[in-house]
Each structure stands twice: as structure tokens, then as C-alpha cells.
């Protein structure tokens, strides 16, 4: 029992000392970070917060302006915009976070292997990766959707591929620099296998900037998800997605602007918060120089 309490306190103090906590030191970081925490909680507890079922239609009460009990009004089918925006946060966040996580894992693996082993392997990997970078994100996403069809899965993979180059390049640049450090030579001299050098020294020392860039990329991922949703290539109805909601709102832009304004504000606020918090994190960790390497 005491042990469990000890562990819990340890976890809290670790959280306090973690780099993430440092970004909360400035007021900008507090506002942006606070918003993101709130958003995350809202997305997680969506079923308990939303007053209506996000898919429940009420055609008698379509395009109702914001008023009690529909705080943000209703769309053309009479669905509650507030509930849909909150569920949309679930879709946007989970799609973007999943996609960026896949991208980070794949990018770090490729980048670390390229940077560590070098040679022909590095050239091939980096050429392919640079090639994906030379296309606009949205184009890669569209190609991907064209191949495996619209839906959340293809959205996830499209976003993951679109941001792969960034993480691969950043990781490779760090590994190449770290490889020259004396502590790597020292570890090799102790008899460290490549696995040990990579997993215990190189990657732990390279991971911080990658995570921060990943954090910022989550914001871009949300925009890309919304864009694909807007074009009907992402989440399919009735799954609420900010992009798809805005798309359906264009038809009644002047009749019921709330249908398009509120999901739009949600996207904007989230992306701004992610970017501000990411900037604070970069400042708090003092890694601006390391990000320039890629």
C-alpha cells in the first residue's frame, strides 16, 4: 500500500519535473496548455458532457439559431451543433494524434537507421523521404485517399505519410551529430552493441525535439484532417468531424452561419493553442538550435 502511494507521488513529481511542465511556466503556456488539457478532457468525456446525441436528427428544428437548449444551434437536420463539435474534437484529436504517432515511430526508425548505418542505405532512404517532402501535404493525402478510398483509416495514413519526411530528417540529423560525441565512442569502447548504442544512447538523446515537432505537427494534422473531411474524403457521415461539418454548413452559409462558424472556430482555436504551446515548449527546453539541423 505504502509502495503504491510512493509510486503515485513519484509519478506526480515526475510530471512536475517533466519538460512538459516547464512549458506551463509562462502565461501564454498556461493559457494554451490549459485550453489543450480542457479540450482533451472534453474529447474523452464527450458522452457525459454533450446534452444531445450527435447523430439524433430533428427535422422540425433544423437550422435553429443558438439558443437554449441548443447552445450553438442546430444544423440542417436539426442535430445539435454543440454536441457535434465536442464529438468532432474526438475525431480530430484521435485521428491527428494516431497519425502523428505512426509518423513519429516510422520516421524515427528510418531516420535513426539512416543516420546510424549511413552509406547506400542512408542515401536510398533519404532520397525517398525527400521525394515525399517535395509534394504538398494535401497532394500526398489525396493520392493516398485515391488509392485506398476515403475514410478515417486512409486519413490517418495520409497524414502519417505527409509528415514522415519531417521526423525522418530531424532524427537523422540528430543521430549524425550525436554519433560524433565522445560518450558514444566510450560506449562502443565498453563493448556496446549497435542495438545498445542506438536504443540506450542515440535515440533517448534525439527524442526530445522530435516529440516537440510531433506536438506541433498534431496541429497541422488537425487542419489536414479537417481539409480532407471538408472535401468529403475523411470521416464519413454520420461521424462528426470538424471539416465535414464545415463542408455541410457551406450550403446554408448565410441562412445559418453557426453551422460553419463553430467547427471553424474549434479548428482555429485548437491549432493556435497547439502552436503556442509548442513554441513555449521549444523555449522551455531550449532546443531551437537543434530543430534547425534538419
Amino acid at each position: 500500500m505504502i509502495n503504491i502511494i510512493g509510486k503515485k507521488i513519484g509519478a506526480i513529481s515526475w510530471l512536475r519535473r517533466s519538460p512538459l511542465a516547464k512549458a506551463f511556466n509562462s502565461w501564454l503556456g498556461k493559457i494554451a496548455g490549459g485550453f489543450l488539457v480542457l479540450l482533451l478532457l472534453t474529447a474523452i468525456f464527450a458522452p457525459w458532457i454533450t446534452p444531445f446525441d450527435y447523430a439524433a436528427q430533428n427535422l422540425m428544428n433544423g437550422n435553429a439559431p443558438p439558443a437554449w437548449p441548443h447552445l450553438l444551434g442546430t444544423d440542417q437536420f436539426g442535430r445539435d451543433v454543440f454536441s457535434r463539435v465536442i464529438y468532432g474534437a474526438r475525431t480530430s484529436l484521435s485521428v491527428s494524434v494516431t497519425a502523428i504517432s505512426i509518423s513519429i515511430v516510422a520516421g524515427m526508425t528510418l531516420g535513426a537507421a539512416a543516420g546510424y548505418f549511413g552509406g547506400i542505405f542512408e542515401r536510398v532512404v533519404m532520397t525517398i523521404v525527400d521525394l515525399t517532402w517535395s509534394f504538398p501535404d494535401i497532394l500526398i493525402a489525396l493520392i493516398f485517399v485515391a488509392i485506398i478510398g476515403p475514410g478515417l483509416t486512409s486519413t490517418i495514413f495520409a497524414i502519417a505519410i505527409a509528415y514522415l519526411a519531417q521526423f525522418t530528417r530531424l532524427t537523422r540529423a540528430q543521430i549524425v551529430r550525436l554519433k560524433q560525441e565522445t560518450f558514444i565512442e566510450a560506449s562502443i569502447n565498453l563493448g556496446g552493441k549497435p542495438r545498445h548504442i542506438l536504443l540506450r544512447h542515440l535515440i533517448p538523446n534525439a527524442i526530445t525535439p522530435v516529440i516537440v515537432i510531433g506536438m506541433l505537427a498534431v496541429g497541422d494534422g488537425i487542419v489536414l484532417e479537417a481539409t480532407l473531411g471538408f472535401f468529403g474524403l475523411g470521416a464519413q457521415p454520420p461521424t462528426p468531424s470538424w471539416g465535414a461539418m464545415m463542408s455541410s454548413g457551406t450550403a446554408q452559409l448565410f441562412l445559418s452561419p453557426w453551422v460553419i462558424i463553430f467547427p471553424g472556430m474549434a479548428v482555429a482555436a485548437t491549432v493556435i493553442a497547439v502552436n503556442l504551446f509548442g513554441d513555449e515548449l521549444i523555449r522551455a527546453l531550449d532546443i531551437r538550435d537543434r530543430l534547425k539541423e534538419a
Binding site: 565522445t182 566510450a186 569502447n189
Partner: peptide
């Protein structure tokens, strides 16, 4: 066969 390095500042992994 071991070695002591010239620069102690970078010979230990900072993490």
C-alpha cells in the same frame, strides 16, 4: 582494454 577520454564533459551520456 579500456580507455579514459580526454574530454570528461562529453564522455558521459548527459541523460
Amino acid at each position: 582494454m579500456q580507455m579514459v577520454f580526454q574530454d570528461p564533459y562529453s564522455a558521459i551520456d548527459p541523460r
